[in-house]
Amino acid sequence: MSQNQLLEPIHGISLEDYSAACAKLGNGMDEQAVAGALGVELPVWQEASLLWAERMKQDSTFEVITLFGQYFGQADQHPKFSNATAGASGGGGYTAQIKADRAFYEELEVARNVAYEYGLDGAQWIVEKYGIALGDFQIAASQWNAEIHADLQADFEGYSQRQEAYRAKYQQLFASAQGGNVADDITF
């Protein structure tokens, strides 16, 4: 057991519970359902949720927020949410793929950001196109984070080139869908 008092459960809701609940909320599960899955009523969930966020703000050791990220990535294994429906995710192959295939995750992460630059809600675009809900997307992000970070240090050049190529691909895709960019006709 850690000595950090800030890791003690709040109203019986542990950091594992809270982190998994956040992932499920991101997938479109509503607060009542989240509270129900945790075996508490709404006022108890809302207090605990508010206070866990406070603890992250108060913790200068970053232990709480680090563990939050780790547990968030393991949300699918949390026993209290094992019966939860897939939420906004179609539950199809893409949701599994983004958690198993790093290149696929990297590509969609870029696509999502470029979508915003073209006036689309990137999270919504991913749902419509691939059936992957935001919570699942973020679960994948926290699963791949450490690996990507290590890769960045080992081969920054290669990583940037891949990112650039994805960027160019989606810029073209979204630009042509809106009839081009405003300054496409201006050349040197």
Partner: peptide, 13 residues
């Protein structure tokens, strides 16, 4: 059992 947890000292609860 309305709630299967142990309440701690929170904000209002």
């Amino acid at each position: 059992s309305f709630m299967d947890i142990k309440l701690t000292d929170g904000i209002h609860i």
